[in-house]
Nucleic acid binder design. Structure first.
Lengths: 392, 392
DNA sequence: AGCGCTTGCTTAATCGTTACATGTTACGCG
DNA sequence: CGCGTAACATGTAACGATTAAGCAAGCGCT
């Protein structure tokens, strides 16, 4: 796999500086330039300062109070005045100062969102749902990737509280204490949990029905004739890991099958984890005929490694995922999985958050989004020899 | 593909409310509770209010100025006093109010990051690099997904300016005007462009050497014996799209091949785009033997659809990607692609940003990160019949 | 003692916006 | 005419931190 080209010999990702024709002046103060020759700013007294409400007021010959109200479209100001103010503000490029407003109102119009892995397409979808709703209400979203590190999550929460966020949407890190959450909530910050529940917490939660989804999936595998069904991945300290595990157990028990503890392998979350665990699965005695994975990432990892090991994913070993993330229907074989309503979860959580912020009554407790089985190719009936899709 | 289970009949993603044993009181004012029985807050005059510097000062019998300085570890305050203040603040759970500080200092310690698609694993990697560096300096990151919609990008920039962000890291949307960027920069907000360059802009830029990477890749395909090489995807209005296209052209011309305009298909960015374009590729006359895709997503889409069409990706049609995003080396066939140093780009951009903010001299112009060819299975030598990896 | 310097803290003036309590008109009506 | 009442607009005091300028005490040195 040697690289034929001479340029590949350089060390990876070294950086070259190319100069543009129009050169940027470097050195202190360049970007904080004092010269403000540009049109609209000529009249501001102190050069280098931005326009304030007061400046607009002075120009327009009205008070700052009126300007403030006008810009916020208050009915206390005559329509005509409102328009005049807004037009002028736009004309001179006035920039509202949220720090000042926040200080005064102790509202920030910011919502913090913390999840353990934004790179996981599943969360990306949740995020899309959140953003869709919150952007509509002019909320700014602050994101944190805590990677299940409690310290990072705590740091992030501290920062958010310092910014006086209106609310916090949290997929709580492993180890999060319910007391901390309740305490923050008592401080007047709206909190909604997503994806993972936390026992003992008094804030709303929106998540998929992991137990039920996992039950459905396991039952499906049983219906396909499987008896040796492994359950791999998921953290037992998170509700999703626990619930999906319990769903698997319950389905087995309901079918009169004793869960084989050797086939219960927790703590895997990523594609790499999925790849790494395959030898263990293939060498188990008796060897499972189906593997129910905690999420799609793990399933894809398993799929890859199983194929490398010379076992054909699907016909020779059924593999299922969870989440139905984008693209898994296009894999070979197409992944049988559980759609989790990620975007719906995001939207619902955002709406719940907005209600809390506006002081509207919020349906208390956990809101469960109903999961849906997506039957595709990676978990065919046992013994049923589906040809691989790849033509040969 | 009917679903056997009765529960699948329900409409998708309906939500059920499950009540927790400990019920959340609903109704106005619950979360803005006035009762503040908890320990440390007993002494605060107005119930429901957070502690201020002044409150600490009063308790400690010193002035707010001293408290402020102490918390920021200023040498102007005696070491002993500093410790006393910090200990007490921690003890009573004082929360710093950034709005107030921001208002006073017109610094926010926030950095805005806008890209066109955070769901693209490539940007996720850039983001990881950014975060790593910026978190170190206690900067809060604000994210925007502008999806190449100028309006969204503008809205986001407005919001950020209102928040008085210290800096802006931007993968500029198609249509972004250089004047706007320069103007913001002149207002004292540090700006660094990433991934995409913008002619006429006077701010630093960190990006991959798209021209060179694409050249390398095309040359590699030519070395493998290909002559009919399609270039698909990329927006001509973005520097990355243009440069990768030009690299392709240059490599062809240097090899004495005339670029076939029919094989130059722009504007594709996603997996779906890649799938959709396949019929057009397969029906081109003469049919290309290799497809150089703008990015990995497009390549994966092409790969899927080509296989569906009964053509074996790799041996029968060489396919290459760009970015070397996570997991593409595990696909079947493993994707030949160009590593783009995404995380490096993120880190470099963040460092450049920090320097600008601190008024340090910034190397001007464009910083190019050197690309690296990753030769794998999806683009084997022409006529060379690699067996498919899937065992049959 | 007197001078200058350092150390450690305080005073008080901001920063730009908003909420509250008042003004000021103008107009209709008894 | 004079009063009540809308309809608009304004004056002003916060909000909570930062920071320049100032003050007081203590020290070393002549």
């Amino acid at each position: 796999m040697g690289c034929a080209n001479q340029l590949c010999e350089a060390e990876p990702f070294t950086a070259l500086i190319y100069r543009r024709s129009s050169c940027l002046l470097s050195g202190e103060g360049v970007l904080r330039s004092q010269s403000r020759a540009s049109l609209e700013y000529q009249d501001v007294r102190a050069a280098g300062k931005r326009l304030r409400l007061g400046d607009l007021a002075e120009k327009l010959g009205i008070s700052t109070a009126t300007v403030s109200l006008a810009l916020r479209d208050s009915p206390l100001v005559a329509k005509e005045t409102r328009q005049r103010v807004k037009d002028y503000a736009a004309e001179v490029g006035y920039i509202y100062n949220r720090s000042a407003a926040s200080l005064r109102t102790s509202q920030s119009d910011m919502i913090g969102v913390a999840v353990h892995d934004i790179l996981n397409p599943y969360f990306a979808e949740v995020f899309r749902g959140l953003e869709e709703v919150l952007a509509e209400e002019d909320k700014t979203i602050l994101i944190c990737n805590h990677r299940d590190m409690l310290k990072r999550q705590d740091q992030f929460i501290d920062t958010l509280l310092q910014h006086r966020v209106d609310g916090l949407i949290l997929c709580p890190s492993v180890g999060t204490s319910p007391e901390r959450i309740n305490q923050i909530s008592e401080q007047g910050v709206a909190i909604t949990l997503v994806c993972r529940d936390l026992p003992g917490v008094q804030t709303p939660c929106v998540r998929g029905d992991d137990y039920h989804g996992s039950y459905l999936m396991t039952k499906h595998l049983i219906d396909q004739g499987h008896r040796q069904i492994a359950m791999i991945g998921g953290r037992r300290q998170s509700s999703s890991g626990r619930d999906r595990n319990n769903g698997w157990r319950a389905a087995l028990v309901d079918a009169g099958i004793d869960p084989d503890e050797q086939l219960d392998i927790p703590e895997l979350m990523t594609q790499a984890d999925g790849q790494a665990v395959v030898p263990r699965i293939l060498s188990a005695i008796p060897r499972p005929t189906a593997v129910a994975c905690f999420n799609d990432l793990v399933a894809l990892g398993v799929l890859t490694a199983v194929r490398r090991a010379g076992v054909e994913p699907g016909p020779e070993l059924a593999i299922t995922g969870y989440d139905d993330t984008e693209g898994v229907q296009n894999r070979t074989p197409a992944l049988t999985t559980v759609a989790n309503g990620a975007e719906t979860i995001g939207r619902e959580a955002a709406q719940m958050m907005l209600k809390q912020i506006n002081g509207e009554p919020v349906p208390s407790g956990i809101k469960l989004i109903k999961p849906e089985l997506r039957i595709r190719e990676s978990a065919p009936p046992i013994g049923c020899r589906l040809g691989p899709v790849v033509g040969v």
